[in-house]
Simulated assay, not measured.
Amino acid sequence: MCTLPNFFLAGAPKAGTTSLYHDLRRHPNVCMSDPKETWYFFDYRKYNERDLDWYESEFFEQCDEQSLVGEATPGYMSHPDSPFRIAERLEAHPQFIFLLRDPVERAFSSYHYDIQRGSRDPARSFSEVIRDPYEQKADPSQNHVGLLEAGRYICHLKRYEQCFGCERLHTVLFSEFINSRRETLHRIFQALGLSPIPIPDSERHNATQYPLSTSLFIALRRAWKVTEQALGPPVAKYFKPLRDTVRQNLLSSGREPPSMTASDREYLHDFYADANASLAEYLDLSLSHWTWNSSG
Rank of each mutant, 00 (worst) to 15 (best):
H269S: 14
F189I: 05
E256R: 14
A10E: 00
H144G: 04
D121S: 04
R45K: 15
Q95H: 15
P28F: 13
F7K: 01
H170R: 12
I97Y: 01
R106N: 01
R222C: 06
Q66M: 09
F189S: 04
P74G: 03
L147D: 02
F164R: 12
F96I: 10
A12E: 00
A92I: 08
D270P: 01
G70M: 13
L9C: 07
F42V: 13
R182P: 03
T208W: 09
F217D: 00
L147E: 03
V235G: 05
P28D: 09
R101E: 07
R152P: 02
Y113D: 13
L24M: 14
R26T: 06
F59G: 00
I97K: 01
L194R: 13
Y40N: 05
H205I: 13
D274A: 15
S253R: 15
P198G: 08
Y210L: 09
P234G: 07
R45H: 14
Q136K: 14
I199E: 12
F7Y: 12
C31H: 04
E58V: 08
S78V: 05
D34F: 05
L220V: 01
P257H: 07
F126C: 03
I154C: 10
S202K: 10
R106K: 13
S57P: 05
S125W: 10
A150Q: 02
F84V: 07
A273C: 06
A262W: 03
S213D: 11
R221S: 10
S253H: 12
Y111T: 05
T38R: 01
T18H: 04
S263T: 13
F42M: 09
D121W: 05
R85L: 10
K240C: 03
R168P: 04
D64M: 09
F96P: 00
C2R: 14
P257F: 09
H93L: 13
L285I: 13
A92D: 14
A207R: 15
I115Q: 00
C2W: 07
L20H: 05
E203P: 02
G75W: 00
T3G: 03
L9W: 00
F271I: 08
W39Q: 05
P257S: 08
H79A: 14
R101A: 09
D23I: 01
Y267R: 11
S295R: 14
D201R: 12
S67Q: 15
P13H: 04
S141I: 06
A207K: 15
R152T: 08
L250N: 11
Y55D: 04
P198F: 05
H27K: 07
Y55A: 05
M77C: 06
R181C: 06
A280V: 08
F7E: 00
C163L: 10
H170Y: 11
P233A: 15
A107V: 08
F7A: 11
F217C: 02
P200A: 10
Y238K: 13
G165V: 07
A87H: 11
N206M: 10
G70E: 05
Y282N: 05
T214W: 01
G232K: 11
R187L: 08
L283Q: 08
S109H: 10
I97Q: 00
G75L: 04
R247H: 01
L185Y: 06
H186N: 15
R25C: 14
R243S: 10
R124G: 02
D64C: 10
R131H: 10
R181T: 07
E37I: 08
F217G: 00
K237H: 14
V246Q: 04
